[in-house]
Amino acid sequence: MRRFETTHPWLRSFDTDYLVHAPPRIWMILGEIKAKCEQLTGIPLMRQTADELYTVYLARGVLGTTAIEGNTLSEEDVRAHMEGKLKLPESKEYLKQEIDNILAEIRRMLSRRRRRKLPPWSTKEICRHNKVVLKDLELPDEETVPGEIRKHSVGVGRYRAVPAEDCNYLLEQLCKWLNSSNNDTNEDSRIPIGLVKAIAAHLYFAWIHPFGDGNGRTARLIEFRILIEADIPIPATLLPSNFYNQTRTEYARQLDRASQSGGKMDQFMEYAIRGFSEGLSEQLASIRSQHLQISWISYVHEQFQGMTGTAAKRRRNLVLALSEQDQPVPRSQIGEINPRIAREYANASQKMISRDLNYLIEMKLVERTIRGYRARKERMQAFLTSD
């Protein structure tokens, strides 16, 4: 009899029977998640927009998984670093290294997924994840070796991880379960079951806690790989890490509760599933906003089609400049919206500005409000709303 069978008896078997007894509300959320993922996949995006979306959520996801462990960089810092523009003092260089390690492993998995060359789950592969996570970082003690299963006892808060002597065995069992469950789902259930499997694997790994350091980041990489294997849209696969970071106090509380419950994952599951669904809603809202902007720009150009001359060009540029503003622009600031407008109205009289604004109001492209002037982008909503 192995020691973990006494200390952690719920780890005798790995499964995702959570769905067997999941309440109806969870099935409803999973159904919504499937529909949202299909919407994300089916929305046509310009290459620039798609690249921007990917970069935004990659930065958030990578930051999320490192920030939970104490990385203090901001999302803007991470994006600047990804572009090679972030400068930090030597004492903070390790913050960039933490980001680089996660980025390297995510990009490796994505590349291999695209080439259909992701290896089967194995203890060796999971150890590799941990080795990359801890590459060139200061370790907590001499006993911790990146990529090597611990030989000492560890714990997180009140939770004591499984005995060191059982870590290798339990990792092998976890990998056996992951490999055997890869072909258990049909196309219709691939996304919801893939999500549940990813969350369950995250919990199982956290309970085993097989390494001296980097277990949380390694668990979230495992979760990420399962999500890309379930064909969840790439930007969405990084949502869990971002959600855990945004709710890190609750994340720690849910992990602790699951650990103290003797292997019950119901509450952690609901917490993670709801967070994923909310993240998908935010992504869809962001994409719809970008579609609205693209459609509006096209519409404005159509309205000025056939019009020539300096005045038409100036008025068109003014509408587009107003379209980029989050709030109405006061009349006194119209000529200063952006450098281009400033140049075009540099020598303009107040009568010219008023004439241009009134012309655009008549075209129903601009509206005057108490706070100033705004573009009427909402006219595009009827064309973009399907419900």
Score class of each variant (00 low, 15 high):
residue 360 L to A: 03
residue 232 I to A: 03
residue 282 E to M: 10
residue 58 L to Q: 13
residue 71 N to P: 10
residue 243 F to C: 05
residue 230 A to Y: 05
residue 52 E to N: 12
residue 52 E to S: 13
residue 264 K to Q: 12
residue 216 G to I: 00
residue 120 P to I: 06
residue 296 W to P: 02
residue 380 M to A: 09
residue 22 A to M: 08
residue 120 P to K: 08
residue 26 I to K: 04
residue 248 R to H: 12
residue 333 Q to L: 11
residue 263 G to V: 04
residue 299 Y to T: 12
residue 88 L to Q: 08
residue 143 E to H: 13
residue 281 S to V: 09
residue 242 N to R: 09
residue 143 E to P: 01
residue 12 R to V: 05
residue 54 Y to M: 13
residue 380 M to C: 09
residue 31 G to Y: 01
residue 366 V to M: 02
residue 132 V to M: 00
residue 167 C to F: 06
residue 384 L to S: 09
residue 265 M to Y: 07
residue 214 G to N: 01
residue 340 R to P: 00
residue 118 L to V: 05
residue 321 A to Y: 04
residue 40 L to K: 03
residue 111 S to C: 07
residue 379 R to T: 10
residue 348 A to R: 01
residue 169 Y to K: 14
residue 332 S to R: 11
residue 62 V to P: 07
residue 249 T to H: 10
residue 120 P to V: 11
residue 138 E to D: 07
residue 39 Q to Y: 09
residue 134 L to S: 08
residue 107 R to Y: 08
residue 215 N to R: 03
residue 37 C to R: 06
residue 346 A to G: 02
residue 260 Q to Y: 04
residue 336 E to M: 11
residue 207 W to G: 04
residue 284 L to H: 02
residue 10 W to G: 02
residue 154 V to P: 06
residue 186 N to R: 06
residue 337 I to Y: 00
residue 312 A to Q: 10
residue 170 L to G: 01
residue 302 E to G: 04
residue 25 R to I: 15
residue 3 R to N: 13
residue 273 I to G: 07
residue 338 N to I: 09
residue 383 F to M: 15
residue 207 W to M: 13
residue 337 I to F: 00
residue 199 I to K: 01
residue 382 A to T: 14
residue 19 L to G: 08
residue 160 R to C: 11
residue 355 R to G: 03
residue 44 P to T: 05
residue 336 E to I: 15
residue 374 R to C: 01
residue 345 Y to A: 04
residue 204 Y to R: 06
residue 94 Y to D: 01
residue 56 V to P: 03
residue 41 T to H: 15
residue 330 P to Q: 01
residue 206 A to C: 12
residue 280 L to D: 04
residue 32 E to N: 14
residue 290 Q to D: 15
residue 248 R to Q: 12
residue 159 Y to C: 10
residue 1 M to P: 04
residue 386 S to N: 13
residue 36 K to A: 14
residue 104 A to P: 00
